[in-house]
């Protein structure tokens, strides 16, 4: 029972990590990293470490996704202008 739960959670983590590298669109890649972090929090909770699970869910799934998306918007803006001409 526990082994099946572990294997399913780890399989979803592996799939999310693979797609984080596979997607060409960076927003999709960031979203699959968020899925990876969420599954990692679930795995920590199954392994009886709720402290680490709370920290991972708050930092990995929410805050780092926001920071990545802010950084992506900055990059895409200057790229679509074709470089800064002054």
């Amino acid at each position: 029972m526990t082994n099946a739960l572990h294997i399913s959670v780890l399989a979803v983590m592996l799939i999310a990590a693979f797609f984080a590298l596979w997607f060409k669109d960076l927003i999709s890649s960031v979203i699959s990293l968020a899925v990876f972090s969420l599954m990692m929090a679930l795995e920590f909770y199954i392994l009886q470490a709720p402290d680490v699970a709370i920290a991972e869910a708050a930092i990995g799934a929410a805050l780092s996704t926001t920071i990545y998306i802010i950084a992506l918007r900055a990059c895409r803006r200057s790229k679509s202008e074709g470089g800064r001409k002054q």
């Binding site: 709720p50 402290d51 709370i54 920290a55 708050a58 930092i59 929410a62 926001t66």
Partner: peptide, 21 residues
Amino acid sequence: TPGGGFQGGAIIATFTAFLLV
């Protein structure tokens, strides 16, 4: 209970991210 300073602070900071989004 499970939690502590770092975890609670990270959850409170998620509030700012939520408002921003």
